[in-house]
């Protein structure tokens, strides 16, 4: 078991190197560079900059170097831990990202917990009461939940809140806490705000997960071991929780592998629409301005979180399923 985890961990650096290379290639792909975009922005605002100055800046940033040298420079800055300098903000990328990363992860994890807390009981109820009114209602909610893009739901909620209740539901803090230092009151304020974006982010996943749970559990409920357990004289609800639910959990745990990463990258859209502190909007801006080291750094963090999510699900699955544990 430990060997299995170590093997997976050993693969991680290799994967990160592959990703960093691919990401850098994508970052380099657009024609022009940060300075071309910068000049265009300046021009649109009426000011200009001389060609000599641009050339000097280009040399300073190393943008005139060949691809592989630039990649090397970036790797060096990554290994040093500062992830290079943001061309736009003129600050170390690690600071820019660090400011937002904590809340990005907090939002995704909060949404994850919320998803499971809703999807699992709903799925169990639906499977044990098939074709009941509640089951039908949940099915309808699930279909609509899956069909509604995150940003649509965010827009609708924001519009309803603004137009009918005259409140703004953007951001993660009340105005007085935005720049306040961390305190218990600030954490409570965060908790009071985070659940709405968390629901928006998790609604499609909740719908999918509860449908997976329902389908799995319906399958498991027809297995002979359920009859065996019933024939032992077990109480029905205890039996359902102990055997079929336990088995229906395995495929659900394997969804963590794609669901957690989906939450991380999905928070990008929700955060952009709802104006949340998150690395998503930062990435969007960096991409548009061709601030390539910042964008590259954020993409690398997304990749890292994705691999971590997959790893987590594999380890959890091995822990709860003896069939996998023994084989490994």
């Amino acid at each position: 078991m430990i060997r299995f985890i170590l093997q997976r961990l050993a693969l991680l650096p290799l994967l990160m190197v592959i990703y960093s290379f691919v990401i850098f290639a994508i970052m380099q792909a657009p024609p022009g560079d940060f300075l071309t975009a910068y000049v265009a922005t300046l021009a649109s605002s009426g000011s200009s900059i001389s060609a000599d100055q641009i050339q000097a800046l280009r040399h300073d940033y190393g943008l005139d170097q060949p691809f592989i040298v630039q990649y090397g420079l970036w790797m060096k800055s990554l290994l040093q831990g500062n992830m290079g300098l943001s061309l736009e903000y003129q600050r170390p990328n690690v600071d820019l990202i660090g400011e937002q990363l904590g809340l990005t992860i907090a939002l995704a994890l909060f949404s994850f917990v919320l998803t499971w807390a809703i999807a699992v009981p709903a799925g169990i109820y639906s499977a044990t009461h098939p074709r009941s009114i509640v089951d039908h209602a949940l099915t309808v909610i699930n279909y609509v939940g899956v069909a509604t893009p995150n940003f649509m739901l965010a827009l609708i909620l924001m519009w309803v809140a603004f137009a009918y209740f005259d409140v703004s539901i953007t951001g993660l803090y009340s105005p007085e806490f935005v720049d306040a230092p961390w305190s218990i009151a600030r954490v409570l304020d965060l908790l009071a705000h985070i659940w709405l974006p968390a629901i928006v982010l998790g609604i499609a996943g909740t719908a999918r997960l509860s449908r997976i749970m329902r389908a799995n559990l319906l399958d498991e409920l027809n297995k002979p071991y359920v009859v065996t357990a019933r024939a032992k004289g077990m109480k029905e609800w205890r039996l359902v929780l102990r055997y079929p639910v336990r088995l229906a959990f395995n495929p659900l745990v394997s969804t963590i592998g794609w669901y957690l990463p989906a939450l991380f990258s999905g928070s990008l859209i929700v955060a952009t629409v709802m104006n949340l502190p998150n690395i998503g909007p930062l990435l969007l801006r960096a991409l548009i301005n061709q601030d390539m080291y910042l964008a590259g750094g954020i993409l690398l963090i997304y990749s890292f979180l994705t691999i971590l999510g997959t790893l987590l699900s594999d380890v959890l699955l091995a822990l709860i399923d003896p069939r996998i544990r023994v084989e490994n």
Partner: peptide, 29 residues
């Protein structure tokens, strides 16, 4: 069918050997 009287009899006084020994045990216990 789900009451205590029948649960007392199931497994206690009348026991069942099911058809498929392969699938009649839970694989994760």
């Amino acid at each position: 069918p789900r009451g205590p009287a029948l649960r007392e009899i199931r497994g206690g006084e009348i026991a069942l050997i099911p058809q498929e020994p392969m699938a009649s045990f839970s694989p994760v216990h």
